[in-house]
Each structure stands twice: as C-alpha cells, then as structure tokens.
Write a protein that binds this DNA or RNA. Sequence first.
DNA 1: AAGAATGAAAC
DNA 2: GTTTCATTCTT
Length: 561
Amino acid sequence: MTVATRPTSSPVTFCENVTPTTYAQTRHSLDHLEDLDLDALNELQSSLLPGFEPCNAGTTTKRRRGPPHRRRSQGHIPRPPNAFMMFRQNFCKSSQFKPGMTDERDSLSRLLGKEWRQLPAEEKSYWDLVARIEKERHKRLYPDYKFKPVHKKRKQVQEPAGSVSKQRISKKRTSPAIDDESGELNFSMDIAKQRELQLERNSYITELYKCGYKTEQLGPFMKRFDAHHRQKALGLSRRPAHEEELDADSHSDSATLFDDGDGYSSTRKLNLDIPSPSGSRISSPATLAYSESSSPAPFTLPTVPRLSSLVPAEGFTGSCSSWGYQQPRRSSSVPLPFGQWEDNLFNPSLTDSTFHSTYPAPPLSPPPMSIMHPGFCPSEMDPEYTPMSIEHRCLIGERRASSAGGMRRSWGSLSKLSPSSTYGQEDFSTNRNGNQWGWMQGTDGGMFNNGELPEVEPGLFQPNFDLSAGGLGLSSVSPHLDGAVSPLDAPSPLDSLPLSFNAEEVQIIAPQPVSPVPLQTFDALGFLDSGDSSAMVDAIMNAEFVDASEDGLVFPLEVTN
DNA sequence: AAGAATGAAAC
DNA sequence: GTTTCATTCTT
C-alpha cells in the first residue's frame, strides 16, 4: 500500500509500467542485429521481454481461426509485428490486463493507441528495438518470407471535379477523440481556446473510456459537453430544451464529433435487463460487477483522499455544533439508466411539484458537468434543481430516489454522537485537539469503527463523481464545484474546507481495482419508448415490492400519494 | 516516379 | 478499433 503525505492530483496514466524495466540495462547500442544468429536474437529478446519464449516468430502460437488463406495449418506465415503490436501484445499479456476488462476490443485499442502516442520516446525506442529483433528473428526463421497483401480490387468512383470523396472523409475519422476540429465546438471562439477545449474534450472522452463506457454510449455525454461549452462561450442564457432536442435529432450541418449519422440516437435504444414487474428477483449486473467473484478489474484508478483527523481551521468562528465533510456517492446498487435521463433532463414539461422535496429534477440552466452524466442525481437541496415528475422518477430507474441519487458519505465530528449505548468508545478517535470524532455513513448517522471507512466506494472513480465538498451544518462554506471535475483532477476536498489538518495524518488510499459499471436502463415495462406514462405509473403502482436490501436488487418505484 | 491507399500483424 | 510498414494501386 502506498502512503503519501499529501493528496495529489498527479496524473494517473492508464497503463503505468507497461514497459519492462529491464530496458535500462540493455540500452547499449544494438546496431548490428543483422549479424546475430537466431540463438543470439532469442537470448537478446528474452533478456528484454520478460516471459518471452523463443517459439515461432510472430508471437503467440495459438491464434484465432482466421480466414482460410491465413491459417497456420495452411503454412501461412504471419507478418512480423511492429513496435505498436509488440506493445499492445505485451500489455494484454501482462498482469494488468485480463480478458473481460473491457467489453469492447476497440475501446482498449483506442486507449492503447492514445497511450502509445503519449509514450515517452525512450520507451518507444524500447518497443522499436523489440520489434526490430522480432523482425530479425522472423528473417532467420523464414528467410524467403515476403509480405504479400492481397489487394481487393479498388472500386473506381468517378467524382466530379472539385468535389471531395466521401470515402476519403470517413477514412480519416479514426478516433472521435483525435484531431477533429470540426463539429459543435466550432462556434465563435478563437483558435487557441478551441484547441484547449478540444483537449479538454479529448481527455473527457478518455475518462469515459477508462470507466468502461463504450464508444456508442458517449453521444449523450458529448452532447451535454458541447451544449455546455457552447453556452459558456456564447454567454447565452439557457437554451430552450426543444432546441437542443432539435439539435440532437436533426443531423444538420452542426454535426458533432460523434455524429456519425446515428451517434446519439443509438443510445436511446433500451437495453432491457430488468426485474419483471411480477417481482421475480433478478440480480443487477452492477451488483455483480461489485462482487469479488466478478471479472477482474479493468484499470487501476486514482487515489482517494482520506482524512484521519479533522480539526476546525484556525480562525473559524462558525457556530455549528457539528462539522465534517460530505462526499456524495452514487448508490452502490445499480447504475442509472442511460440516454433517457439525458434526453429528458431539460424537458420543462416533465415537471411535477408533487415530488418537489424528495426528488431531484432537471436543472433550469445548463447543468454543471457533474450532472451531465447519467448516474449522478443531484441533491434535492440544490436550489438549482426544480421538482421532479413521475416521468423523471421513472427515468432514474425503478428505484427509490434515495438509492438512485447520489448518496452522501459524511465524516467528521458530531457532537450529537457521543459514546453511548449505540456507539462505544471504540467507535471514536480523539484528534489532537481532544475532540472525539468518527466516521459516519449515509443519513442515519451510523458509524464505523475507529475512523475506518468501510470500503472503497467504486463510485468515487466514476467520471460523473462530483467531489463537491459540503460541511455538515456549514452550508455557507460548502462550495459547489462546478465544471468538469473528474476524479483525476478534482481538487482535494481539503482545499475547500475550513479545516486544517496534520499533513502526516493525511493518507492516500492505495488505488483500488474497480470494475466497470454496466450501464443499463431500467424501463421495466417498456413505456418510455411508448411515452404512455400513466400506464407506466399504474403498472408500477401495482407492482409487487421486491425487498432486495441484501444483494442490491432493483426496487420497484415507490410511489407516494 | 511519387504519392495515395490498403492489408496484415495481435487481441 | 489501434500503429506501422510493405506492397500495390493511381496519377
């Protein structure tokens, strides 16, 4: 476990230490690979690549069944891999990666592509060397090999002079995150700003990928991102919801970077994996993802600040009897639905004052980045949010709002909690000011022993996680951190609290593996598509209640009259 | 002859 | 879907 003295926002790369460390010892000049025989090459390669076995050139022996002309059994000889291929293969072989970490191959490829482009020159040259050796080995093993790609007949497309081939345009569109200056970001903004925004946009996309989102799921995220920044740049007041809907639906010339014709609409399709209304219990995929027996964690993600001691800041003269730090967390049960939430968030016709006090609702103005992600319900305490309708409640899934919305984990010192029959002395620690304090969880004031947080909350690693700092009973000093706050660069909560702390008492919890949370929608009855909300409400009200407190199953919506 | 386009390598 | 390189196609 790594212990640091200060929470940092040091960049956490997606795949640290992908390059074997032995490189340093073998950096001597290797200009004469051509002179080495196969044995020498094998030896050299094994010294460079841990786990290297001098089998056939190419790399692994087992290979997926390819097209007939490329079967090993047919005597096909694969090309020698290039540096990137070696890099990628090594990553997949290494303990960092296990099959199943990403559902989608291409997201891994994209991540690795980005990683490769950012790889320090020194590490790149390591992989160049490995690839060179591989090439030489290949030459020794198959002296007569010649790469003979089979060219398909290129179809002749006659274009009128001056027009641009469509093929050419689409060909260059490699990753949505790269080098695309077109799209919605192109409003009146100077070039430098645009570039900066583009970079921000790219890293946002990377964050999403890291958290397991798939390319086709990014549409709503980027839609909000673009809308938010366009608004910011133009300094406009709120843009009517229907206009945004129009933007999304009409594929006009204001296409976004993700608009491939069906970019946004694809996320509107419902992915049904939900409890049946009859109340049969179906385990949530999210629950599975959190369980220990599920597939291995995808990535090592950032660290979490953790306080072992809090004391009021010097000069703080607040009158509250309790103070602390609140960290909103997402419910650990199930993810929020995708797409529908986004698409309806701004629809003013979907408000309903009945649930004013209980449920989060669409914002009146462009949302802070923190709620541009489905998966985080803003606090009902926030004046920015208006009442929420039944429709909205359905949109957040068939759960009580309390479990759908962001929960808050608090810790700090509470005068109302003192050693008693409920909480024993062992539940408290004494800080250096002599104050007793303990951790609390949720809203019930339950405490954990001796300052230990019970578990690492996976939601902390979500890109949608909002590190807003709040003080218990200290609303005046709980700044809401607006803007794109990813766990990677969110300011330490320590920075925004009226607290001082002992540097040596601040620890970093070692990075914990976190499984990607499957994104799903929970439209049990399929009404969202039909738009028949009254039927939906009827059905939900008649649905059997499923008690699932233990294993985090989905609750039917609790309807209050 | 030079530049563009494309296949193949691993997963 | 990734990067790179060898080869082939096009101008």
